[in-house]
Structure formats: structure tokens, C-alpha cells
Design a protein around this nucleic acid. Sequence first.
RNA 1: GGGAAGAUGUCCGAGUGGCUAAAGGAGGCAGACUGUAAAUCUGUUAGCUUACGCUUACGAUGGUUCGAAUCCAUCUCUUCCCA
Length: 403
Amino acid sequence: MENTIYDVLKSRDLIKQITFEDEFKQLAKEEKFSLYLGIDPTADSIHIGHFIPLMMMSYFQKCGHKPIILIGGGTALIGDPSGKTDMRKMLTQKDIENNVESIKKQVSRFISFEGENAAIIVNNADWILKQNYIEFISKIGVHFNVNRMLSAECFKQRMENGLTFFEMNYMLMQSYDFLHLFENENCRVEIGGDDQWSNMLAGVDLIRKLHKSGSFCLTCPLLLNSEGKKMGKTVNGALWLSKEKTSVYDFYQYWRNIEDSEVYNVLRMLTFLPMDEVNRLSNLDGSKINEAKKIVAYEITKLIHGEEEALIAKNTSEELFENSNISDTMPTVIVDKEDLNILDLLIKCDITSSKSQGKVLINQGGILIDDNKITDINYNIDISKKEVILKKGKKVFIKIIIK
RNA sequence: GGGAAGAUGUCCGAGUGGCUAAAGGAGGCAGACUGUAAAUCUGUUAGCUUACGCUUACGAUGGUUCGAAUCCAUCUCUUCCCA
């Protein structure tokens, strides 16, 4: 590949901030190195927020560099003392192993764990937990200037509602991770979301203090919608990458429904489509941009769930929305004969969480069965039917199979 | 260690004895208009009930009162100031 990783990332505008830019450009030209990305293993699945750094990592790997995924098992073992809500769940060794396995599975669609520059997964528990406190603060802590730390943007916000010592230590631990990988794995670069900039910068500085040079970090832009909020949040929380948590169909629909203004960013940051194509698609006018959204949805779904699943989701959506046909693969709920009352049914299908809510929906004309608007809140589904199509609003379709 | 302020629905935030299931805003959902977009307008947004109404709910637990988000006591937590 004649383009260096720097050129590639630059062309997709995936670099938000970078340290020692010129030096990094040179390094990218001359050497193959390792780079790392830290992931908090508090859940057994990663969500879309992790995705852009992983895309970045994938580009690095394509350019011949070796990705290291760092699982924050050590830091997760420490309870969060800020006590805002509950104590952070303590993770057992076993939890972490499970999480690592599923994360690996999800990531392996676009990052390879085989071959010459295979990615590896490490757990910072392996070195953090061995640390002796006094040794740690005298070896690492002396290099951190509290005044400077406090002036960092990420602490400024915390200053307003209280900052705990733990949170300050977090920076040291993260920096130490980088140092450890630098010394043991030839890891030269840390990547991450832009909210991690201060922490990452601290690691780069630490290494440069101890080893004079060679460390870099770069951040990717956060994926924001037009209102400046993080994308990938749904009613039910995050948009997960595992299909047990977010179904492939829902995942596809999320991207199919993005705003016009988001198409460009999503294509550029979340797909591997060539930039020519990205530009062409995002400049489509008016309703034609729907074509671009279909491609966005398909490409991202393919990347996460594989081609087969993506095709199914795409076909299901087209059947439902464009041909108003019933699709075999649409979301389906099986109910007993006892649940044929419309209000019960809505709860059963997770469309509403209470009967009151269901009544409101029906009164507003938001519920359709087999394309007939339901107006009676006592409506019962015809018992002779084997299956019906329940529609909420314009976008939610569920096939009901009556047992 | 001393002092001050505060905790309200998904979130922000008004409310200082009955008119409060709790103003207003944001967000969510539905309807109209559209392109499975945005913007705009309308409705709706604790649970149960066809409904009258009932049951929960303003940090927790007790108390005062015919009646408490509102007053009192204790506790928990948060923030700020002084040391």
C-alpha cells in the first residue's frame, strides 16, 4: 500500500487531534508499529461509541500495523468511589474472560486476529494489579503535575461538581498502561475517542519523559448528530453491536433513519466505501438521498453482522416499507390465545409498557392491525386468524403469530 | 473539625399547608404535512379502571394536622465556604 496510515486517516477526516503531527507522518512512512485502544469491559458487548476508534484501528491494520485491544480489567476491578449511582459493578475474572471472548467475536469482523500483524487483546489487570502503591507513585506519580492536570479540559467540568482522587489517579493508570505497552509491545500510538484526549496526552508525555521520544496519540471525532448529541443512543439505551442486545433489523433501521445531514459523516467514518463514492452519495439531492441512507444502513450492518444478516434486514425493510408486503423475516412475536385483547397484546409485544399508554396510542390512531386502524380499546383479534400484522405508527411492524 | 445550601416525574426546573398526578422547558410517542429526513403545527407523556373514581409518587424513616412535596425530628447523600 503506497498510502501511509496517516494519509488514509487524513483523507477520511478521521483525525480530530494528534500529537507531534509531522513526526508521526514520518514514523508512518518508515516503520510498522503497534498501537492500542482501551475498552472498558463493563458490558459483554461493545456499542457504537466504540466503533469509530475500531474503524481507525482497522485502517491501521490494513496499513500493516499491529493493533492491541486493551481491556480495562484492572481498572474495572476497582469500585468507582464517586458513588454517583451505585458502586460500579465489581467484575470477576470470569466475567472479564466472557466479555473478552464476545468482544473479540464482534471485533473480528473488521480486525483480524490472524496473520502477520494479527491483533492481540491484553488486559491491564495483568500489570496494574501487581503494582505496589508506593513504588507506583514514586516512579510514575512524580511525573504528573497536579496544577497542569487540573487545567485540563476534562477536569474542568468535573471541578464544578467535585473531583475525586480516584479520578485523578485514573489518568496515571491509563498513562501507565501506555508505558507498559510501549516498553513491552513496541506500542507507539494510542488511539481513542476525543473525550479521552487529556488522558491519552498524559500517557504520551509520561513516555516522552522516561524515554525521550517515540510516543503518539490521536483521537477520532465523536459521532454527533445535528443537535450535537452522541449518535447511537436509542430509547432503550445504547445501540449495541451484538444482535442479542439490538436486533439486526433494529440496527439496520437505526441507520436507515438518520438525518440527511448525518449521511456524509456516517459514510465517511463508519464505512469502508471509497471517498469518491462517499462524496457522490452524500451529495444526492432531495429524496434521492434515501438511496444513500439505504447504502449506509446496509454497509454498516454488513460490517457488524455480516453480509447475510445485512441482506436479510435490508430485504425485510424493503418489503415492509416499499412494497407493503409481509416479510418472513420481520420481527415476530408469538402469543397465546389468551392475549388477544389489543391492550394485552401491545404489552406482550413490548410496544407499550402499560395499558394506559396503549389506550393513548389507540385513541390517537397509532395502532393498525392488518392495515385497519384500531379505534376500540376493547378490540380483540379475530381468533380464527393464525397471524396478523401489528403496526405502530409508521415505522414499527410486528408479525403476531397466534398459537 | 466548623458553617451554609440542596435532594421534585425520563432529564432540566417551578412549586413553601387544601385549587398539585405536581407550572414551564427539553426529550419520548402518536396525528397532519413529507422522502422511513428535517422543520412546522396538533395531541399525548405514573399505574389500574369503559367511566365515576381508586392506588402509588416530590431522598429515607417517623411525627404534627381534618389535610403535607410544602411544617417538625432523625437519618442518608450531594454541593459550596472556612480550617
